[in-house]
């Protein structure tokens, strides 16, 4: 049996492909791209929320937000490790992010203008991520699937802490409710765009579905998210910025209006006013941390010399 036969058999049997297995170049390339984007998104995603750590309204909210941002760093690390099993180095991935040759989710190119945005991100952005990541737990590449299982376990805390921020605001003053509504108005559409272009326009979907990298299509995931989220919004007493949003009795689904894909493409291509700033902040953090890495390396060297002496 050739490597290719074994690969096809593994995929057909819903088994996992593991790092040392033969795999088509395209499969490996697609995975590196997808896992790297996913990892970069976790890392860049620390910035919009980190922006509010010093201004969280209470000490409890502050330590919760710090724990959440720390989780995002952890998720980035799990994913970089998974990418490395495909033969790409951590340094290379970082280099590609810093030079703009690999992308991260455009959702992080929107600003966090108020405290309510932190609630909206947890509820909507992490909520959308959970829908996506639950589906990815059954992706065909073993290390990626295992990283997803680990991440999904932690992600539910993220969505719930966001919803709890909004619940507190919904029981607050008129001004607090207005702040919450404003955040929902700004984050709703970008959250729906996180699932990517419609199936008919998605260039990657077909091959990725065949290889079982992707198990559920963009539109199916988006619908799942809308169906679970709209009723949660009613409980908060918020409205969604979509006059066409209606419940379809026949299908049992919430139907959304047209997504503004021009905005999506503009933000993906880096027109988002924050995209340059996000990368600059990441590069700056890496450069300013150089002395820490050098000190750790020097200390490791010193300890090893002392041991051999």
């Amino acid at each position: 049996m050739t490597g290719e036969d074994r690969f096809l058999e593994t995929i057909a049997a819903d088994d996992k492909v593991e790092p040392r297995d033969w795999m088509p170049d395209g499969y490996r390339k697609t995975l590196i791209r997808q896992i790297a984007q996913h990892a970069h998104s976790e890392i860049i995603g620390m910035q919009p929320e980190g922006n509010w750590i010093t201004r969280a309204p209470t000490l409890m909210r502050k330590i919760i937000l710090m724990a959440k941002v720390q989780d995002e760093a952890g998720h980035g690390l799990y994913l970089y490790s998974a990418a490395e099993t495909l033969g790409v180095s951590r340094d290379e991935l970082q280099h590609l992010l810093h030079t703009g040759q690999q992308k991260y989710s455009s959702i992080f190119n929107y600003p966090t203008l108020s405290w309510a945005d932190i609630g909206a991100i947890g509820w909507l952005v992490d909520g959308a991520a959970i829908v996506n990541q639950i589906a990815l737990q059954s992706t065909s590449y073993g290390p990626y699937a295992r990283a997803m299982v680990r991440i999904c376990k932690e992600e539910s805390f993220h969505a719930r802490q966001g919803y709890s921020i909004l619940l507190a605001l919904s029981r607050g003053s008129e001004a607090q409710r207005a702040m919450m509504q404003d955040a929902i108005d700004r984050w709703w559409w970008p959250s729906l765009m996180m699932f990517g272009p419609p199936d008919v326009e998605s260039t990657h979907t077909e091959q990725s579905m065949e290889w079982k990298i992707k198990r559920v299509t963009n539109d199916e995931l988006r619908q799942q998210f809308v169906d679970q989220t709209v009723p949660q919004g009613e409980h908060l007493g918020v409205t969604f910025p979509d006059p066409d949003l209606t419940y379809d009795e026949g299908s049992g689904h919430w139907m959304i209006g047209d997504i503004d894909w021009d905005e999506f493409w503009a933000v993906v291509k880096g027109d988002g006013r924050l995209s340059r700033e996000r990368i600059a902040a990441k590069v700056r953090a890496w450069e300013e941390g150089a002395w820490v890495r050098e000190a750790a390396a020097a200390y490791a060297e010193k300890v090893s010399l002392r041991r051999t002496a």
Binding site: S41, E92, Q101, G196, S202, T203, W265
Partner: peptide, 20 residues
């Protein structure tokens, strides 16, 4: 945190393994 960022001009599409 999306997993589908469409390919755009300037994106590195070569196999990045072993370059750096």
């Amino acid at each position: 945190m999306t997993y589908e960022v469409p390919e755009i001009p300037g994106e590195q599409t070569e196999d990045p393994t072993g370059h750096h």
